Amino acid sequence: MLTRRGVLAAAAGSLLLSACGQPGQRPDDGTPGSAAPDRHELVVGASLELTGRGAAHGVLQRRALELTAEELNVSGFPVGNLRRTVRLEIRDNGSDPRLAARQATELARRDEVHALVGGTLAETSLAIVGVAQARQVPFLSLGFGDGIALPLAQRTFVYKLTPDAADVARRMAQLIESLRLRRVVLVAVDGPHGDAGVRAVRLALPAVDVGLARTVRLPVGGTGFTDAAERVVSAEPDGVIVWATAPDSGSAARALRRAGYRGTLVLDPGAVAEETLTRPNLAAVEGAYAIHPACLGGSMLTTSTTAERDRREFTLRYTQRFDRFTGFAPYASDALRLLTSAARMASSVDRGRLRAYLQTQVVEGIAGGYAFAPIRHGGMEPDSLGVYQVNQGAWTVWS
């Protein structure tokens, strides 16, 4: 079967030489933006939401980064004629876009990182985008939002690992059709992530002949959801889509149940974090559905047994270290693996060469599949998405 991933793999290969600069570049040449050659390191700067409203995802991504760096550093990885290790420079942006931008600037200028990772919130990712482009530092975004890697002409150093809203919405629409729901309400958080969801859902539902009774926006900050929930209930839907990130997803579910809604809940991937299945939320989210990448449970990686093994091993290491794996997409782990793969292929940690070889990556990662190309810098492949349901306080594969 001809897939988008296969087409992009061919495109990436044919355009690789033109994307890499002039012939004869010396591999691992220590050009500006590289760490001192004698350090033998790939230096990755991460601005993450370790506190604030994005911490439900930011803390999980830090864990994924550190676990993967430890694994890679056991024996290092070849880059040209050197064997390098990963050094992480992690900063807490406090879920503040302005702080995220300042941190990205400092990491690029003072710490001379080879690449940037981070921004689990769309707002912080978008703040880092400007810095990455100005400083010409490859940036792998972990945020939800369709405007992060587009327009491509202004995002040449930017790559997005999360699923595109249109792919998530189409999978939601298929689920809603199979559940025979005919009238739904969309509850979307204010901001770029919610905006992307609103656009995508409005396009996806008519394709399955499902009516969108109302769109209700949630205020940023996790409070004041009562009024929004009451507006949802007054529309008398038989299904509700909650398009938000944890912890807002769980808070919205609680508000809806308190307002008297007892129907079906469908959540986008941003809901899947440990916070959503904590005790205060369990009764509200029991039975809820979520669209999420393959790593959540029940492997969907049918094309790569190596990828399946890597995902299982990552889950095992994570569980051993942190006691439980309640389900999240380890995008940060994939970001680090994509960077080390690009460094191997480029025989260099030069920022420009890393960027060029990132856009040739067509791989199955821990979280799901990616097909980057010069004409496409994100996000996750749609066939990586599955349907899950909360069953007795745990995410389970829905069939």
Rank of each mutant, 00 (worst) to 15 (best):
R180G: 11
A108Y: 02
L65T: 04
V363T: 14
G239R: 03
V43S: 12
T162K: 06
P247F: 04
D227S: 15
A166W: 01
A207L: 15
R258Q: 10
L267A: 03
G76K: 01
G287S: 08
D238Q: 06
Y159Q: 07
G145T: 01
L277W: 02
A165N: 07
R26Q: 13
M345Y: 04
K160L: 02
T306I: 13
L181W: 03
G263S: 10
A207R: 15
V349E: 03
G369N: 08
T68C: 11
R109M: 13
V74D: 09
G33F: 00
V198H: 07
A290V: 13
T51M: 13
L60M: 12
G130I: 05
L126G: 04
A166H: 08
P37S: 14
L296R: 03
R87E: 06
L339I: 04
I128Y: 04
V74M: 09
A367W: 00
A149K: 00
L296I: 14
G352M: 04
V137W: 04
T245F: 09
Q320K: 15
F372P: 06
V240L: 10
A253S: 13
A294T: 12
R5S: 14
L339C: 08
G368T: 08
E308I: 13
A346I: 06
S299H: 06
L8T: 00
S18E: 14
A165M: 10
R62Q: 15
L181A: 07
R312Q: 13
V216N: 06
N81V: 13
A12M: 00
L301D: 11
I291C: 00
V233W: 09
I148F: 02
G130C: 11
T124D: 12
S18Y: 05
S178P: 00
V189F: 05
L205E: 01
R4W: 03
R183W: 05
H57Y: 12
A259I: 01
S304F: 06
S251A: 15
G365T: 06
E274W: 08
R98E: 14
G221R: 15
G222Y: 08
R84S: 01
V86T: 10
F372E: 09
D96F: 07
A356C: 10
P37E: 14
T120Q: 09
L16I: 02
L256H: 03
N391C: 10
R217M: 14
D167V: 10
S141C: 12
D350E: 15
I375Y: 09
L186F: 03
W243N: 01
N391A: 13
L140S: 05
L256C: 06
A288N: 02
A246Y: 05
P330G: 08
R312C: 06
L203M: 11
G260V: 05
Q103V: 14
V187A: 11
T396S: 11
L50S: 12
F77R: 01
L205S: 03
A173Y: 00
N73S: 08
F157V: 05
R376T: 01
A101L: 06
A46D: 14
T85K: 12
L150K: 10
A64S: 15
C20M: 11
N73D: 11
L218G: 03
F372T: 02
T303D: 12
R355N: 15
